[in-house]
Simulated scan of single mutants.
Amino acid sequence: MDRATVLLPFVGIIVGLGLADLLLSLHRTVRARRRWHWLPAFWTGLTFLLVLMYWWVFSEIVTSPVLGSFGRFAFHLGSPVLLFLLCAAALPDDVGDGEDLRTYYFANHRYFFGLMAASGVHGALDYGFNYGSWGYPVPWIALVVAGLATTLAMTRRPAVHVVVSGLIAALLVFLIGSFTRTF
Rank of each mutant, 00 (worst) to 15 (best):
L67F: 03
G68K: 10
A159G: 03
L49D: 02
G147Y: 08
R35F: 03
S178P: 01
L46I: 13
H109I: 02
A118Y: 13
V160I: 13
F73K: 06
Y111E: 13
A169H: 00
L23G: 01
Y131S: 06
G98D: 11
V57I: 15
R35P: 02
G71I: 03
L148E: 14
I141C: 01
T63C: 01
T63H: 10
S69W: 04
D93Q: 11
F70T: 13
V145R: 08
R35V: 14
T103P: 02
V121E: 05
A74W: 08
S59W: 02
F183I: 13
T103C: 06
G78L: 11
G78I: 07
L101V: 10
A153G: 02
P80M: 11
T29A: 13
V163Y: 02
Y127T: 09
P139M: 03
I61K: 09
R156Q: 13
S178Q: 06
H161G: 01
L152Y: 10
L7M: 14
V173H: 00
R35G: 01
E60Q: 12
G18F: 07
T150M: 09
V144N: 10
A169G: 11
A117M: 11
A90Q: 06
L83Q: 12
L85F: 15
P65Q: 05
A153L: 08
D100C: 12
H27G: 02
L115I: 14
A118L: 14
G123Q: 02
I13P: 15
D93P: 00
A118N: 04
D97W: 15
V30F: 10
T182S: 04
V62Y: 05
A149Y: 03
G128R: 03
G78N: 08
L19N: 10
H27S: 07
V81M: 12
T180N: 00
M154F: 05
G98H: 10
P137R: 14
T150C: 08
V15Q: 01
C87K: 04
G135Y: 04
Y136D: 07
V138G: 08
E99R: 15
P40Y: 03
F48L: 15
G147H: 08
F183G: 11
V145Q: 12
V6F: 15
F58V: 10
V30Y: 10
L52F: 14
D97Q: 14
S133V: 02
G16T: 05
G68D: 08
L8S: 13
S25H: 15
N108Q: 12
V95M: 14
F106M: 14
R102V: 07
R33P: 00
T182K: 02
A41V: 15
T5I: 09
M53P: 03
R157M: 05
A20I: 04
